[in-house]
Design a binder for these strands. Structure first.
Length: 452
DNA sequence: CTAGGGTTAG
């Protein structure tokens, strides 16, 4: 039922000589889908007899509009709850970010099906609890239920976020055993898993093995290459995509433009941005603008970046903070304090608690000998009660995860890691335009924890 | 006939 049709549906419903429960249920769903929550609830209360479908429709509808409490009330008032009823509650809680509630429902339900497990695994993944999601995945396999397409896509996504290449490979093997690796959604998730685990070769191999590609397959491989700084390969894939019938979307161009940015391909970047707007008729988003400013800025074309901002304004768009951020980053590299200050202050107007901006501005002042201005920035930061979040990163090696937090140095291999990092940064220093005079400071890392 | 699950960037 489309929005314009709901009126027509209502007319028919009113004119009907007789209605049954199915008719009422259909009408209620239509009301919810078109945003008429009051009418939906009115019908629900008015209808002569309610079956399980009626309740499930109302719970899902209320959950979809964020009315978690009323959904709970309807649920609590039910006598006969089906698996779908319980799953609707889990789904609703997950959708509204209440993962703990979702798990409580899961724990209490008398019978679970594949969807119940999938919802919990997906929900945990979406809420930064991927490791717990994996635990549920293992428990699921110990039950008498078999993982399906949705299970595997969620698990691959978790593997790509953790990231855990080992688990990803293991899961890959399981999809082959079950034949689910032939499904396009599963393959797509697998490409992203391999890409984000740093294994572009396997990502490409999976991509190449697929008989059919959809826009997500192409986006996954393009963004994968772009993310790894393989700008040329990303663009090669995009050119191959153009030979197919698959239409690129806005995400494709985020990949393409960031590829140009990482590879320093300024002319191509200008061309693809124009191509996106004028040939594909895609409205640029703030991400696209950010990519272009980043591309121009990295290359030192600060003036062109500034006039590009005018072009954005001409589209009737207010410059988003992320665009100013890209410009600020460029100014930092190319030591353009004048524009950098404009960019930084523009961000702070909208995001006064953005600690990174204060630090970059202070650093820029300091490195150009304006110590007093740097101190003013620090004072402002302190005055606003802004603290920097310590940096954190993690990596999986030989089945165990190593988590590093900026500041302390308790990792057992701290000295060896520092030594190797210094070697690496010396190596990189020869390839960067700017000589590595910036950092004689010791690289500070620390060991925080381990997971299995 | 009607109800629950969604993979892509930064």
């Amino acid at each position: 039922m489309k929005n314009a049709c709901i009126v027509e549906a209502e007319n028919l419903f009113d004119k009907m000589p007789q209605r049954n429960t199915v008719t009422w249920n259909t009408m209620i769903r239509g009301y919810f889908q078109n945003g008429f929550f009051d009418k939906a609830m009115c019908s629900f209360n008015q209808m002569p007899e309610r079956d399980n479908f009626s309740y499930n429709t109302v719970i899902a509808g209320l959950m979809q509009c964020g009315d978690v409490n009323n959904a709970r009330e309807v649920f609590d008032g039910m006598v006969d709850r089906s698996v779908v009823t319980w799953n609707s509650m889990i789904s609703g809680y997950v959708r509204n970010g209440l993962i703990d509630e979702a798990i409580r429902v899961f724990d209490n339900m008398p019978i679970r099906d594949v969807v119940s497990w999938n919802l919990v695994i997906f929900g945990l993944g979406e809420n930064d609890c991927g490791e717990d999601g994996i635990k549920f995945f293992i428990r699921m396999k110990e039950s008498d239920l078999f993982p399906d397409q949705s299970t595997f896509t969620s698990v691959f996504t978790i593997c790509s976020v953790l990231p855990s290449l080992d688990l990803g490979k293991q899961t890959h093997a399981q999809t082959i055993k079950t034949g689910l690796n032939c499904l396009i959604a599963v393959s797509n998730a697998m490409i992203t898993m391999y890409a984000r685990c740093g294994n572009m070769q396997s990502a490409l191999q999976e991509f190449s093995s697929m008989p059919i590609h959809d826009v997500i397959s192409w986006n996954s491989i393009i963004c994968g290459f772009a993310h790894h700084g393989e700008g040329k390969k990303a663009l090669e894939m995009f050119e191959r995509m153009r030979l197919t019938d698959v239409k690129p979307n806005d995400i494709t161009f985020v990949g393409v433009l960031s590829a140009c940015s990482h590879a320093g391909l300024v002319d191509q970047g200008r061309y693809y941005f124009d191509y996106m707007k004028n040939k594909c008729f895609l409205q640029p988003t703030s991400e696209h603008y950010t990519c272009v400013v980043d591309l121009l800025g990295r290359f030192g074309l600060i003036d062109e970046a500034m006039s590009f901002l005018d072009q954005i304004r001409a589209d009737g768009v207010e410059i988003p903070p992320s665009v100013w951020g890209a410009l600020l980053g460029a100014c930092r590299i190319h030591k353009n304090i004048k524009v950098g200050e404009i960019a930084g202050e523009s961000i702070l107007e909208v995001e006064p608690s953005n600690s990174g901006v204060y630090l970059i501005l202070a650093e820029m002042f300091l490195s150009s000998g304006r110590k007093e201005d740097a101190e003013k920035i620090w004072a402002r930061m302190k005055g606003n009660g802004i603290k920097k979040q310590p940096g954190c990163s993690w990596i999986e090696i030989n089945n165990s995860g190593h988590v590093f937090l900026s500041g302390d140095r308790s990792h057992t291999e701290f000295r060896r890691i520092c030594f190797l990092l210094n070697l690496l940064s010396a190596e990189m220093g020869t390839k960067i335009l700017k000589p590595s005079n910036a950092t004689s400071e010791e690289i500070r890392i620390s060991f925080v924890g381990c997971y299995e």
